[in-house]
Write a protein that binds this DNA or RNA. Structure first.
Lengths: 221, 221
DNA sequence: ACCTGAACACCGTTCAAGT
DNA sequence: ACCTGAACACCGTTCAAGT
C-alpha cells in the first residue's frame, strides 16, 4: 500500500503538527504553562527551536492547536436524556477535559480555536438548545454563557490547586487573614465556603443555577 | 502641619506604590498588557527597571495592585432596590470597571487581590445575598458564580474588540468561514448571533439567566 | 533608604546557509 | 523541503555600588 502519491522531494520531515502538539501537551503536564517555551519543546523533540516555525506560525498558533486537541477528548454523550441532562453532561465533559491537563483551562481560555473538535462541541450544545425549543438567539447566548462559566470555574479551580513553592502562603490562607483583619462580617461568615476545595460542589451549584435560569427563559419571552 | 513624624533618613523616594500603579494603568491603556513591561514602565517613571523592585516584589505583585486599584472604581450602589436589582447593579459595575481599561479583564483574571477594594466588592455582593435570605453556603457560591461569569464575559468582550493588525482576519471572520466550511447546521443558524458585537445584550442575557436561577434556589432546598 | 548600572539567564522569532 | 546555527531584540529579576 503506502502509495507515494506526492513524491516528497527532500528528506521526510521529522516533525509534524500532530506529534508536536502531543509532545507539547506532555511537556505542559510536566512543567506547566509558564515554563512551556518553544526552546524546551524543541529540546524534547530533538530539534532546534526555529524548526517549530515550519509547522506553527507563532507560539499562539501552537497553543491554539493544543486547545483544539484537548477538546477532542470530550465524549459524545449519545444519551437519550432530556435537554437538561444532556446539557449537564456536556458541561461536565468540558470541565473534565480542561482539568485533565495542567493549566488546561488557561491554555483553552487564551486561545480561540475554530477547529473541528471545538466546533463539534459548540454544535452539540447548540443542538441541545435548539431541539429543546430555544430560539436561535437564546441558544447562541446560552452556549456562550455555558462555555464562559465552565471555563471560569476550571480556571479558578486550577489556580487554587496549583502547587505553591515552599514558604509562600496558600491563596486560601491569604484570603483568610485579609478577611479576618478587616470589617467584613459577610466575608467572615462565608470564608470557610469560599476557601473550600470541594470544587465539584461549587461547579454543580453553578450548573444548577444555570440550568434553572435557562429553563425559565425557555418558555418565557 | 506636615509633621515629620519619622525622620526619613536619606533622600525622599521618587517612587511610591500609588503613583507607580497609576502610571502602570495609563501605560496599560496606551500599549496593552502584552507590551506592559517593567522596563517600559520604568522609562515612563524616569527610573531604571530595577528600582521598581523596591516597591513591588514581582511583576505579578504590580499586576495585583493594578487589579485592586481598578476595583476601587466601583460605585457603591446605595439603592433601596430589592436584592435582584442590587445584584444586577453590582455585576454591571464590575463589568464597567473592567471594560474601562484596555485588557482590564485579563489583568483582573490573572491576579487574586485580597486588598480592601476587592474585599469590599465581595462583601457587598455577599451582603445582598445574605440579607435576601440565602444560606451562607449558597451566598458564597453565588458570589463565585457571579464574579466568574462577569469576568468571563468581559474577557470575551475585550478579546473580540481587540484592534487587529492589518491583514489579519477578524475573529468573527475566522469563525464564520470555519462554520460555513463544515457540516454544522446549528452553528450555521446561530453564527450571526455568535459574532454579534452587541455585548450589552449578551451580558444582560447571562445576567437574566443567573438571577432567574438564583431566585429559584433561594426558596428551594 | 533609594536608585543606578550592569549583569544573569532566559524569551519568541527570523533567516541565511546547509543537506 | 526541512532543519541548523546564529543572531536580533527583547524579557523579569538580582545586586554590588553609588548618593
Amino acid at each position: 500500500m503506502s502509495s507515494p502519491s506526492i513524491p516528497s522531494r527532500g528528506r521526510p520531515p521529522r516533525l509534524d503538527r500532530a506529534k508536536t502538539v502531543e509532545t507539547a501537551l506532555e511537556l505542559l503536564d510536566d512543567v506547566g504553562l509558564e515554563a512551556l517555551t518553544m526552546r524546551r519543546l524543541a529540546d524534547r523533540l530533538g530539534v532546534q527551536a526555529g524548526a517549530l516555525y515550519r509547522h506553527f506560525t507563532t507560539k499562539q498558533d501552537l497553543l491554539t492547536a493544543m486547545a483544539e486537541r484537548m477538546l477532542g477528548d470530550v465524549q459524545a454523550s449519545t444519551g437519550s436524556e432530556d435537554w437538561e441532562g444532556r446539557l449537564r453532561a456536556l458541561a461536565r465533559a468540558m470541565r473534565r477535559v480542561l482539568l485533565a491537563r495542567r493549566d488546561g483551562a488557561r491554555v483553552f481560555g487564551g486561545t480561540h480555536s475554530v477547529g473541528p473538535h471545538t466546533l463539534a462541541f459548540a454544535e452539540s450544545v447548540l443542538g441541545v438548545f435548539r431541539e429543546a425549543g430555544f430560539k436561535d438567539e437564546d441558544a447562541a447566548r446560552a452556549l456562550m454563557t455555558l462555555v464562559n462559566f465552565t471555563l471560569g470555574h476550571t480556571l479558578e479551580e486550577q489556580a487554587a490547586t496549583m502547587p505553591r513553592e515552599d514558604g509562600a502562603p496558600d491563596e486560601a490562607d491569604r484570603l483568610r487573614s485579609a478577611v479576618l483583619a478587616g470589617p467584613y462580617p459577610h466575608l467572615t461568615a462565608t470564608v470557610p465556603v469560599l476557601t473550600s476545595t470541594d470544587f465539584d460542589a461549587h461547579f454543580e451549584f453553578a450548573l444548577d443555577v444555570h440550568v434553572e435560569g435557562l429553563r425559565r427563559l425557555r418558555c418565557g419571552a
